[in-house]
């Protein structure tokens, strides 16, 4: 019963939303928007809260066990300091909350993002060896694309940007389109399996 009821709810909501998608009646459109925009977002917001509580619990447990205490403590302080600043001074543009966001979170996030440049570069040294036709094509496409977006590309040949644009708009677009068609068909079958109750992994392992 603990699995049957969620399955029935899932099928009911699935069928309702599926049918509402095709209806042009104002009530149906309004209901569709309400469920998708408001209900969805609110439930998602609560799932995020559940995630935060879980994160704090896991870190506090690790702190109690004495594993890498300072790191766990810093993480938990980070989680609590932001709401505290928001409660005391608000979240307007010149508030301490935004100051922390602009001077701590943004620079670190950008640097972590930038760090990946080095790992991408080292991965390309390993992956871009022209050992097969496929690897050679990969290398050539990436090289042309990189050259087209740098000054040196224009210096080598005027046609490089045009060739790069053609590659992006036609052969690359073709593969992208095929992948999208595959994603579409995959989502369609998975959604159908979920709605009719064949796919039940989302219920978890417990009885």
């Amino acid at each position: 019963m603990t699995r049957k009821i969620p399955q029935i709810i899932c099928a009911l909501f699935g069928m309702t939303l599926f049918l509402l998608y095709f209806s042009q009646h104002p009530t149906a459109r309004n209901l569709n928007l309400t469920i998708l925009n408001d209900y969805f977002q609110i439930i998602f917001a609560f799932t995020l809260l559940v995630g935060v509580v879980s994160f704090v619990k896991v870190n506090l447990k690790a702190f109690e066990r004495g594993e890498d205490r300072s790191y766990h403590l810093v993480s938990v302080i980070g989680v609590f300091i932001m709401p505290l600043l928001a409660i005391i001074w608000g979240i307007k543009g010149d508030s301490p909350f935004m100051w922390v966001f602009e001077n701590i979170q943004v620079p670190m996030q950008a640097t972590v993002f930038a760090l990946l440049a080095f790992f991408v570069a080292s991965a390309s040294f390993r992956g871009f060896r022209a050992r097969s036709v496929q690897a050679t094509i990969l290398l050539a496409a990436a090289l042309i694309m990189l050259l087209s977006r740098s000054t040196i590309g224009d210096m080598i040949a005027d046609q490089i940007p045009q060739i790069a644009d053609w590659i992006r708009n036609y052969p690359s677009m073709a593969a992208r389109r095929a992948i999208l068609i595959g994603i579409g068909l995959g989502s369609l079958t998975t959604s159908l399996r979920v709605m009719v109750g064949i796919e039940r992994t989302w219920l978890g392992g417990d009885k």
């Binding site: 995020l48 989680v79 300091i81 932001m82 979240i91 979170q105």
Partner: peptide, 15 residues
């Protein structure tokens, strides 16, 4: 660790 904590705190408040 600080980045993870502050990011979660930020999204918690915005959420």
């Amino acid at each position: 660790s600080l980045l993870i904590g502050v990011s979660i705190g930020y999204f918690l408040v915005i959420n």
